[in-house]
Amino acid sequence: MNEYIRIEKLRKTFKTDRVCLEVLKGVDLKIEKGDVCGIIGFSGAGKSTLARCVNRLEEPDSGKVFIGDVDITSLAKRDLNIERRKIGMIFQTFNLFESMTVKRNIAYPLEIQGVAKARVKERVDGLLELVGIKEKGKAYPAQLSGGQKQRVGIARALANDPNVLLSDEATSALDPQTTLSVLELLKEINQKLGLTILLITHELEVIKYACKSMAILEDGVIAERGGVDEIFSNPNSAAGRIFLKVYQDMRRNPSYSGGEGI
């Protein structure tokens, strides 16, 4: 086993005025290099929190996150910023910079490191080509469809040649067909670049379509972890069984959601 991402005993509690909400109660998760690992869980299960602890957008209370040999959780701010460049992240709400054109959005992560202009331009053009929106370089984000916005988000996340891509419900705001094409793109990137992808979702279809392995997050811990087919054929956790049942119901009755296929 070539474990690339190791999450160990990760705990996170949110404290608001009076209440303490224990979201992650000791998450252990190992992800191999080049894997596309889907994490599924109910709304509020703490999937986003888990993903955000990996690049420390959220500070975990305790526990460790290793990527390769680097202990992310113990990095000082400056080193963390350097390490973050190697961890791409895409979001459900895209979070593109509306003051910048598509090209400048994608160039931003390079510009902040002072990469030479010619090099940036070359890289941006390559990325636009890779995500299939070559003609949109001069457009502003507000002029794009959701699918195109997420492609920009992906290109921007890839600008630094990261080793890891964190995808937090990246397709949840998209229609089924666009979801499919964005997942296709993520699979392609995974194959071409050997990127390790942590794919957060609340749709089993997405996992079935795009992931190589999966984990179920329930009650603040990983309830189940394994290959996609393995868990699909015989889910052991309560959450796993519910997700599977909903998935099967939807397939039997395609009018439920976007339809068959995804």
């Binding site: 910023n81 973050r84 961890i87 979001f91 709400t93 979070n95 910079f97 490191q113 921007r156």
Partner: peptide, 14 residues
């Protein structure tokens, strides 16, 4: 939007 700041942080911005 908080998400824009998150995105910038995630890319390693100071």
């Amino acid at each position: 939007e908080k998400g824009k700041v998150d995105a910038a942080k995630a890319m390693g911005s100071s």
